[in-house]
């Protein structure tokens, strides 16, 4: 770890100011000289590994008073960005009306991490790509733009099959984000010019030719809240992984359905563990709308979700696995009692 300055931001303006002041135009946000500290479960880890080297840490935990509310409305939900993962997962109304959110949180990380980590930090969690996390590898386009990608032909069992580019195949590791993208969450962003809102699907960027740029957030901007319209009691999060707890997804599916009289009115499919960013399978969703569910449909939906998938040496299994996970999660969502 390298020396850094530490500042506590006691109000949003102060946080935004502190983060903007240190921002340099030529740095993508992930490499910015000033970094916000919330739960610290990713940032501190990456600083110890010398992957992130911020000169200034702006502790935004004092903003929790204003930014950690869990507010279920009659037909909506608002979640403060500094709400703890464990608090949201345990919230009775979220478990009842947004089970996909509650379960994506509960199946993430460990109890200790969920107690520390915040929602905003969680969706900003960075990839677990071993080569990204090991600075002794020069060639990482995410860390050193233009240096190449060690994972492409390396050990890539955990890597992505969707949304990849020839620059980067690093998997987006989170779970909550799949639920948020599936439910069309809106991200409330606080910056120098006040707040702005974007669809969750516009928060993250595919690696393309610049894997170092991971989100559309600008220097000085902070996520202050997420909001969701409607209720999604018929929703599930299914996560396949190597061990029973405390492990990242090999493949996961966030499914939300609106089923009336056996007909699927609306369907949402988010995919995790298989893509470079939070992933919404819109072509797959389209196949479900207006249909009655059966196994053949589930299979077509699963195939559509992975139609563009591209495997590498060790991760091709994720395509078949991902399809089975989608099909099973759909089945679970259809048959769940609400």
């Amino acid at each position: 770890m390298r020396p850094f300055s530490y500042q506590r931001a006691t109000d949003p303006d102060m946080a935004v100011q502190a983060l903007s002041a240190a921002a340099a135009a030529n740095h993508p946000l992930s490499q910015a000289i000033a970094q916000p500290l919330a739960g610290g479960t990713t940032l501190i880890d990456l600083m110890k590994l010398d992957v992130m080297r911020p000169a200034a840490i702006v502790d935004i935990n004092p903003l929790a008073q204003a930014w950690s509310a869990i507010e279920p409305g009659s037909d909506s939900l608002r979640l403060g960005a500094l709400a703890k993962m464990s608090d949201v997962a345990a919230h009775a109304e979220i478990q009842r009306n947004y089970p996909v959110i509650a379960s994506s949180l509960k199946l993430a990380a460990s109890a200790q991490l969920r107690n520390m980590a915040t929602l905003g930090g969680n969706v900003m969690q960075r990839t677990r790509c071993s080569y990204f996390r090991d600075v002794s590898y020069e060639n990482c386009n995410k860390r050193n733009p233009g240096s190449g990608c060690a994972a492409m032909d390396g050990v890539n069992r955990m890597h992505a099959v969707l949304g990849t580019s020839d620059q980067c195949i690093a998997t987006y590791p989170g779970d909550l984000a799949q639920a948020l993208i599936a439910l069309d969450a809106v991200v409330e962003i606080t910056g120098r010019a006040g707040t702005r809102s974007i669809p969750f699907a516009e928060l993250h960027k595919a690696p393309g030719n610049s894997p170092d740029i991971e989100t559309t957030l600008q220097p000085g901007e902070l996520i202050s809240a997420f909001s969701i319209q409607g209720r999604w009691p018929r929703s599930v999060y299914l996560k396949a992984r190597d061990r029973q707890s405390y492990e990242f997804a090999l493949s996961s599916a966030a499914i939300a359905l609106d089923v009336q009289d056996g007909t699927i009115r609306d369907a949402r499919v988010g995919l995790g563990g298989v893509a470079t960013m939070p992933w919404r399978a819109r072509e797959a969703e389209a196949l479900l709308k207006g249909q009655k569910f059966d196994e053949a449909l589930a299979q077509r939906v699963a195939d559509a979700a992975f139609a563009d998938a591209r495997g590498r040496r060790h991760n091709s299994f994720k395509i078949a696995l991902g399809k089975r996970v989608v099909a099973r999660a759909l089945q679970q969502a259809v048959t769940m009692e609400i």
């Binding site: 460990s110 190597d242 061990r243 707890s245």
Partner: peptide
Amino acid sequence: YVNDNLADYLVPVNAD
């Protein structure tokens, strides 16, 4: 060695 840490070198957790 690629997975040279206890997050990537898996050992059972209590739930296992």
